[in-house]
């Protein structure tokens, strides 16, 4: 047990170092951007004294190293500055928008794991029948279509030809004001508000499909391969002799050995999925941080871009950390070493 704790601490330390690395890259890159950062922050009509004061406030009159130190201190204290285009505190904006993205991404992940897992298990059950190539082909096709194209195809089909789902937004304005937190879906699930749950789900279903379908196909492919590999082992044979059905062989014997590599891969792919929220949120006008990131880039809103990149970076690092710990938890060798 102490060993696993030690390796967990090691990973956490590594994650902290990586996050610091991201901060350095962000700092350097944004200093490369042509233009005076102060010029973008001042409100119109400031006097030269005010500008000089601001420059001193941000430590921009000091050396690059002291500038970095001041910048880092501000970041650590949660002072991300003010958005130029939206004229609001960046941290506040992030706190409003991040929950929307998190709900979307996690919903897509859950959907992908369930669908991908089901396809893999069914694929293993029907192996060597005519259904196997059919399933493989369907899976391969899902995989070949990127989330951007999925999103737009879904919009065409369910927006125009069978208009069943709302095409944009997160929640109908009529229910929007009743929330205490920005986690609308979780909050309405916890308070059992059926109408809100239905409304939010119907807004989320298409973006979730667009993000989740390619991931489901990847999970299905990898998990099926791992399952087939496990199914030829001797312990499966012995379990079969004990009279276990094929489904039980998969669920009770093979799955727990196949799941480790799949979890590791799903983690990496989940960071890609979060990357995908940027464009998918845009297509569905979903008010998350991804959609906001595009506006920030279009408007060259540097304080906001900086905050967004740091949040995305922290998310990716946290996911990788979580995956490492999860993989260890699924592997008895690591758990008891």
């Amino acid at each position: 047990m102490p060993l696993i704790l030690l390796s967990a601490l090691n990973r956490i330390a590594l994650a902290a170092v990586t996050l610091f690395g991201v901060a350095v890259v962000v700092f350097v890159l944004l200093r490369v951007v042509p233009g005076d950062p102060i010029a973008m922050m001042i409100s119109p009509g400031s006097t030269p004294e005010q500008i000089a004061q601001m420059r001193a406030n941000y430590g921009l009159d000091g050396s690059i190293l002291s500038q970095f130190w001041i910048w880092l201190k501000a970041i650590l204290l949660g002072d991300f500055g003010t958005s130029i285009s939206l004229r609001r505190n960046v941290l506040e904006l992030l706190a409003e928008r991040l929950p929307a993205t998190l709900e979307l991404a996690v919903a897509a992940l859950v959907f992908a794991v369930l669908l991908g897992g089901a396809i893999a298990i069914i694929g293993t059950l029907v192996r060597r029948t005519f259904l196997e190539p059919v399933l493989d082909t369907v899976n391969g096709t899902i995989l070949a279509v990127p989330d951007f194209v999925w999103a737009l195809a879904l919009i065409s089909v369910f927006g125009v030809f069978f208009p069943v789902f709302p095409l944009s937004g997160r929640v109908d304005p009529s229910v929007q004001n009743d929330f205490f937190t920005y986690f609308y879906l979780i909050e309405s699930l916890l308070t059992l508000r059926l109408s809100a749950i239905v409304d939010i789900s119907s807004h989320m279903i298409m973006p979730v499909l667009a993000l989740g379908l390619p991931l489901a196909a990847i999970i299905a492919r990898v998990l099926k391969e791992a399952l087939l590999e496990a199914m030829v082992q001797d312990y499966i044979l012995l379990a079969k002799l004990k009279g276990k059905s094929n489904l039980r062989l998969i669920m009770q014997e093979a799955l727990r050995n196949a799941i480790g590599p799949t979890v590791a891969l799903t983690g990496v792919q989940f960071t890609f999925l979060i990357g995908g929220t940027v464009i998918v949120e845009r297509i569905f006008a979903y008010p998350g941080i991804g959609n906001m990131a595009i506006d920030a880039v279009i408007n060259r809103d540097l304080p906001l871009i900086q905050g967004l990149v740091l949040v995305f970076g922290a998310l990716f690092i946290l996911i990788n950390l979580g995956v490492d710990l999860l993989v260890a938890a699924f592997n008895p060798r690591l758990r008891h070493a």
């Binding site: 001797d234 312990y235 012995l238 379990a239 050995n257």
Partner: peptide, 30 residues
């Protein structure tokens, strides 16, 4: 009949036990 009336002692103990399950559950399944 299999596993109940007729059983097997396998060749390779490395691969004949499921690495992901405790000995107890594998021994008591049957």
């Amino acid at each position: 009949i299999m596993g109940s009336e007729i059983s097997l002692i396998p060749q390779d103990p490395q691969t004949a036990l499921n690495p992901g399950r405790r000995v107890e559950s594998q021994l008591t399944d049957g």
